[in-house]
Design a protein around this nucleic acid. Sequence first.
RNA 1: GCCCGGGUGGCGGAAUGGUAGACGCUGGAGACUUAAAAUCUCUUGUCCGCAAGGGCGUGCGGGUUCGAGUCCCGCCCCGGGCACCA
Length: 854
Amino acid sequence: MATSCRDYDFREIEQHWQAFWEKDGTFRAEPDAGRAPFYVLDMFPYPSGAGLHAGHAENFTGTDILGRFKMARGYNVLHPMGWDAFGLPAEQYAVKTGVHPAETTKTNTDNFRRQMKALGLGLDWSREINTTDPGYFRWTQWIFLQLFKRGLAYVDERPVNWCPELGTVLANEEVIDGRSEVGGHPVERRALRQWVLRITAYADRLLAGLDEVDWPKSTKTKQINWIGRSEGARVFFDIERTDQRIEVFTTRPDTLFGATYMVLAPEHALVDAVTTADNHAAVEAYRKEALAKSDLDRTELSKEKTGVFTGGYAVNPVNGRRVPVWVADYVLGGYGTGAIMAVPAHDERDYEFAMAFGLEITPVVALPDGSAAELPYVDEGVAVNSGGFNGLTTAEFKKAIIQKLEAEEHGSGSVNYRLRDWLFSRQRFWGEPFPVVWVDEAAYRAARNAGGEVAEWLPPEPVVYEAGGKRHFALPVPFTQLPVTLPDLDDFKPGGSGESPLVKAPDWINVWFNTATGETLPGSEVTEGGAWVRARRESNTMPQWAGSCWYYLRYLDPGNADAPVGKEALGYWGSPDLYMGGTEHAVLHLLYARFWHMVLYDAGIVTTKEPFPKLYHQGIILGEDGEKMSKSRGNTVNPDDFLHSHGADSFRAYLMFMGPLEDEKPWKTPGLEGLHRFLRKVWRELAGDSAKVTGDPEDALETRKLLHATIKKVTEDCESLRFNTALAQMMIFMNHVAKLDKLSREAARAFTQLLAPFAPHLGEELWQRLGGTPSVTRAPWPEYDPALLVEDEVQIGFLVNGKPRGEAKVPRDATQEDVLAVAKANERVAAFLEGKTLRKVVYVPGKILNIVAN
RNA sequence: GCCCGGGUGGCGGAAUGGUAGACGCUGGAGACUUAAAAUCUCUUGUCCGCAAGGGCGUGCGGGUUCGAGUCCCGCCCCGGGCACCA
């Protein structure tokens, strides 16, 4: 039943059809072998307290239009939604107010869901997922076990932002200019035990896979740069008077003869071994100072190079020269080997350092023509001062020197990555607990020897850390014991020692653990011996990225209790046909998710190498002032306001009409009013009291032609997500209809179908009023008749020497001679040709005739 | 500094190498109305001109082409990412 409103009462219409979709189950998706699947996926939102913002609305409207369009084209469309609901804001709110993060999450997701329904999004709510739901994170933990078992998860001491005043670790975004965002307390670097995932083991696959996906070029480039593969060589330099050697990575092994000193990063393990007694105090002081600096300070204060001589020397393996070893913070501990051979003649940083400290500079590369280059010269050239290698080009030299190094066991060809392993733990409450307990060595051996559930998930090498003179061994909480849920807490303040608030639940953190079955009991219970050992749970939680790394799989089979996703569901739906979201996730989320997908591929869970074959970014919507929306600027756009004042259909249509979906563009409320006017006009022409659709007249040829041109344009534009030009074409059609006295029912229905994905409520209402059966999304999409798009007469522009001088309609198949005759007869053209000799004529049928004359 | 995008009317934007500015907004003039709203009509790049029409115009400078917003070379500016990555 349509509504009975006489005017375009969008409030009544929108409510009515939202209720219909819910009752009808219009967007419920079930596998159907008879229909081709189409899976359209949005980056699921973090349900913040602020509610849906304009960017969300743009993102979800775009995918909704595509989904509805594909439904009408006969596809079985899956368009699901869910919540990336673990994360910092809910926890911070809990610390402040005592409200449990789960409660905040519930409130916020309810609000988001309400807003999405009010936007008229055709989503399958039966598949809604939430990363904080134990039924969901049970599988997040299971995937962690897969990583753990494969040796891809390990623990390491890593520096974090530690705020002594707050007694907590801070995320980078909580630190502003070296002080805590809350309270402005000083923040320092402090090494804490962390879980790390070995993403670097997949660096080459992550790089190679980019060739196989249809992604925006800029996003691929960002990932390529982030992975940062570089080819070069590892070279060993023996340290004088010790049996140790320093390993360096260089992309320019051809400059080895120019290595006149070496630099170790302050955190390098061999600093003590190299440093002589005389220099010990100075080196130690420098080291302390450097390590206290944050990454930011270390790079920002880097205008002048600093460093200190260790007093030690190493030996250049190619020429036996003694080279002094320095410590300087311009060498990064985390990249390469944390040590470099310095070639000041051919590296700007080394040059600057050598100049500052008066170190030797030996040029070993000359310009390609053999003449001396101005230093520092960092490009390729020909070798000089390089013994038997003189005269070789850079490329030849690289090959030759790597052979020599390998033969003499002083080095080898090598590949290095900028990509670091993924720091995977957070000292927070509101995240997935790790399915891990810590035990002593005896318990570890017991679990290993028991060969039970626990042993099944153990990695080949134990994961171990040392503290308080003891070694702690990680045991997996096996799959059968998942999920490991969060304990009840009413105080979410940090633990104070740098540990998460979870340590405040003594019976949760300290447990009895069964080394055979993996069962746990509260530590305070009296437990019999046998396989039961004392254990301490991992107190860290996983980062927010974890839940979002695999949610696209869970949508396919959200209720499955036996697997993260069933083979059948995965086989039917496959990968998302389109993944839409903002560019802010171009690197991290999309890289982490690809990494997990590859691990799941190796584990035989998924059958595709890449999770997201086609990716699209919607552009940022700026405030009315052309600046980024922000509360402090007061230029935010709240969808709720406009849904109420202009309606969801107008809001959606305007969002799509603003410009290309992927472009950054400013919001303009008068523009929204324009689209609202357009929809009102559609109502007036097709459904209002003065509607044109009465009786059933035959449309004039011109109207039919325009309708079919519109069907073609809208169809093609929907396929390629050019929604702005699709709407422009629909406006052209309506402008034409406005001039008519009557319009056929058939044409009105076809137009309604074209409009329906954009303005779905109005679409359903008109569709029913025009005699259709809801939902309009189930009616087959209109086809255009190509014969109607062929014009008998075409407009030709006349150009004289490339400048437009007139135009005329000519028969479609007119010859160049015919058209030239018409052009010459044109007054303006004739005037420009007067007194000139015709040199050349270019005729492009249907477009232009260019007469070249002088 | 390096790597990506992008510069078109008053504004958002449109244009397979083929008549630049579709469509929308804004502004101006008018119609309808007692009035307003709504709606409709005309107009709206710039300069010259009463007009017909003409000159100039897609960040700047060159080039290719019968023809360039579109392709090539060199700059400038804006946005984003990375940033001592050896």
